[in-house]
Simulated assay, not measured.
Amino acid sequence: MTSYPVQKTPQEWQAILTPEQYRILRLKGTEPPGSGVYDKHYPSKGIYRCAGCDAPLYKASHKFSSGCGWPAYYDCIPGAVERHEDRSHGMVRTEIVCARCGGHLGHVFKGEGFPTPTDERHCVNSISLRFTEDEEEAGEGKKDEEGENKA
């Protein structure tokens, strides 16, 4: 089993996540298609972050309309997502998880012919995400004019 930088017990995760976030992020569930707040969300800029640990995962510019019923991205922020073979449901798929906390995001599919730079579709549960308009990727907070972190 992979070890992630953010480690919490199931009880600690349950204390900070809603029951539905816990079911999807920690128990590898799936939200119903078309039900997520980010399915038809197309901002011009911003970052989609992990709802569990706040790690930056996807840029708004990576998002595209796939018609699948879940938010779709053609790429992630480099190093933000890990891929694992998923043999559940009688098929082989590629699961994607947050590289910082291991939270289940969804699955990635290749070769579907979408007119994107990667020909990949990261099919992500909205509930696994949190959107911020701030394009800052690092979780260090805003910096002042001298480059120092603000409190």
Results as ranks from 00 to 15, higher is better:
Lys45Phe: 02
Ser35Asn: 11
Lys110Asp: 02
His62Met: 13
Arg23His: 07
Pro43Met: 08
Ala138Phe: 11
Glu95Ser: 05
Ala55Arg: 02
Glu112Ile: 01
Pro43Tyr: 03
Gly139Phe: 00
Gly69Arg: 06
Lys28Asp: 01
Gly69Asn: 08
Glu137Met: 12
Tyr58Trp: 13
Lys150Ala: 05
Gly90Phe: 11
Phe64Gly: 02
Lys59Ala: 08
Lys63Phe: 09
Pro117Val: 05
Ala72Phe: 01
Lys8Asn: 14
Leu25Pro: 12
Gln21Ile: 00
Thr118Met: 03
Phe109Asp: 07
Gly52Leu: 01
Arg130Pro: 03
His89Tyr: 03
Phe64Asp: 00
Ala15Asp: 11
Ala72Ile: 02
Glu140Asn: 15
Tyr42Ala: 05
Pro32Ala: 10
Asp86Gly: 01
Tyr22Ile: 08
Ser128Ala: 12
Pro43Thr: 14
Arg121His: 02
Ile127Met: 12
Tyr42His: 04
Pro78Trp: 09
Thr30Asp: 11
Trp70His: 09
Ala72Met: 04
Tyr38Gln: 13
Leu105Trp: 01
Ser126Thr: 07
Val6Pro: 09
Glu95Thr: 01
Arg87Thr: 06
Gly139His: 03
His41Leu: 12
Tyr74Pro: 10
Met1Pro: 11
Cys123Arg: 06
His89Asn: 04
Asp54Ile: 12
Glu82Pro: 00
Ala151Asn: 14
Arg87Cys: 01
Tyr73Gln: 15
Asn149Ile: 04
Arg23Thr: 03
Cys101His: 08
Gly113Thr: 02
Gln7Arg: 13
Gly141Thr: 00
Lys110Arg: 11
Tyr42Pro: 08
Ala55Asn: 09
Glu140Val: 00
Ala72Tyr: 03
Arg100Ala: 14
Asn149Arg: 15
Leu57Ala: 12
Ser128Lys: 10
Ala80Thr: 06
Gln14Ile: 14
Asp144Met: 12
Glu133Tyr: 09
Ala80Tyr: 10
Leu25Cys: 13
Pro115His: 05
Gly111Asp: 10
Gly141Ser: 07
Cys98Val: 00
Ile96Glu: 11
Ile96Asp: 10
Arg49Leu: 08
Gly90Pro: 10
His104Phe: 10
Ile77Thr: 02
Phe64Trp: 04
Tyr58Gln: 09
Leu129Arg: 09
Asp54Tyr: 02
Gln14Asn: 02
Ala151Asp: 13
His122Tyr: 14
Ser88Leu: 05
Val37Glu: 13
Tyr22Arg: 12
Glu31His: 04
Phe109Tyr: 10
Leu27Thr: 00
Gly147Val: 14
Thr18Gln: 03
Glu133Gln: 13
Cys101Lys: 06
Tyr74Arg: 05
Leu57Thr: 01
